[in-house]
Design a protein around this nucleic acid. Structure first.
Lengths: 283, 283
DNA sequence: GGGCAACGATACCGTCCGGGTATTGATCCG
DNA sequence: CGGATCAATACCCGGACGGTATCGTTGCCC
């Protein structure tokens, strides 16, 4: 199967409309129709049920949509990583590390320092992004390594090494009655009047229904807590980022958060290997 | 980048010889040369250093070789899974589960029975193969799920759920002095005179140097032990497969073996999800 | 119910690109 | 120095891919 065919099919499967898909692909509609027919003939499978009014995915079609996206990602990643490898032979850019903006600055700083001290270290670019975006960047070959936080991030498809495990704290507005407690339980903070837990976007960028404000990153979250509009449960290490108008109380029964360093399999790169080794040796 | 270009490049990179690569691809050499040049131009990277006598990979070239193989695997997997999805809509074949021939028959039997009892269960084909082969079958889309054994198998690139953890036992010829012991340590069985630990093949099919007979599967291993030519350290569950002329003694400090069920990410299939859910509920 | 609009399929055509053969040019070997 | 090997170049051809025009079907709305 050619990747062009896959791109065509994915476009149609996503748009469920030949005309729009063709437009998106920058070709006319008839060649697209033909290409899909040809693909179906070669696969011996009907991928789309189409009337002259509506296009729907068959069972086989949804499989190919999911698998095809992954395959196209892999092809793109191969291209990008090759380009980057070629550049790094001549120019500056070395490794790209991606992590959440909310991640522990301490751990990251220690890691970058330790790695920079290694013999043969290359420059490391750090990308900070919102949750769930790291996975994409890593898969698409725009980044070489990521610091992920289980159980929030999925590590599916990557190699990982555990770096640290920490408990979580409840982040509350300073002066809130609970802040005098030495510790709390989850039950204490769910359903606090006027301080709902916020909602994070799903993998696809939509928000689950329910009460609580919508947040997209940790800064927004802290802002909301400071404003007295929400409370939060965050990894302990976020304490270093709290200002005077925020307080943190350990939550005994919150799930532990594990920070892992993740990288794509097939990574032949010595730089990635060095960085990972350095990270695991940080203890 | 087109998958055809990737296939061409991978062929040349593996053969390090345009003529042989062209032959393998079923095309003539000149178009292949051109295709590679074009790929290099488009990537803006030199992939191969070539004189008229020798071809070698550049740094960027090795990256593209590794990444390109993975990408091509993904494309092939997409194709195969789609074909299978289309078939299963009409014909018999449902899920394909792959596991090592040496794996616990008990666990597998329990899993298959429990799944077959589920509503909406589809037929499950079981493939038994040697170690390290499962990974390939799963990646290539020839199988839907695998039972893997950590730390022996790599689970990189897959979703996994832990099914069970067990200790290991030393497998010895019946009547060996150590078999009267209630348990042993690793130190007791490494370097036993005349009973070396066997060598397993590496990921690439070659054997590491050293003493000890070469084995490719568990049956061979047990055969060698029974013949008094080797001893072995195996998961406890292999006890059910031992005959009268073999004995097992727990090894207290051997690494624990974890059996996991693994499946490729992107699996939209309800059947895979059901099977995994059934597996995790086995406890 | 008929006419219209939307949309995918079909027909047909031109062009560019992928592949083939023949040849050149460079390098290693005897 | 001559021959063999192998990648690159030159040149040509056919087919596949993309474009335009059109058809046929299906909802929809007056």
């Amino acid at each position: 199967m050619e990747s062009r065919e896959l791109r065509y099919f994915v476009a149609v499967a996503e748009e469920l409309h030949f005309g729009r898909a063709a437009q998106r692909l920058g070709i006319a509609q008839p060649p697209l129709s033909r290409a899909i027919q040809q693909l179906e003939r070669r696969l011996g499978a009907t991928l789309l049920d189409r009337t002259s009014r509506t296009v729907t995915l068959t069972e086989a079609g949804s499989v190919l949509l999911a698998e095809g996206r992954a395959a196209l990602d892999a092809v793109d990643a191969a291209e990008r990583r090759t380009r980057r490898a070629a550049l790094s032979a001549t120019g500056r850019p070395g490794l790209v590390l991606v992590t959440k903006a909310s991640a522990s600055r301490e751990l990251l700083a220690k890691l970058l320092d330790a790695y920079a001290a290694e013999p043969g270290a290359v420059p490391v670019d750090v990308i900070l992004c919102g949750p769930a975006e790291q996975e994409r960047l890593l898969r698409e070959g725009r980044a070489d390594v990521a610091l992920l936080h289980q159980p929030f991030d999925s590590t599916a498809g990557f190699h990982t090494e555990v770096l640290s495990t920490e408990g979580q704290v409840a982040v509350l507005p300073a002066g809130h009655p609970l802040t005098v407690r030495a510790h709390v339980h989850m039950a204490d903070i769910t359903g606090l009047p006027g301080l709902p837990l916020p909602r994070w976007p799903d993998r696809d960028g939509t928000y689950p229904p329910g009460p609580g404000p919508q947040v997209r990153d940790h800064a927004q979250l802290l802002q909301l807590v400071a404003l007295g509009r929400a409370c939060a449960v965050s990894p302990e290490s976020c304490r270093t980022q709290l200002h005077g108008d925020l307080a943190a109380v350990p939550v005994l029964d919150a799930p532990k958060v594990t920070t892992v360093i993740a990288w794509p399999p097939h990574s032949r790169s010595r730089a990635v290997a060095d960085l990972v080794r350095t990270a695991t040796r940080l203890q």
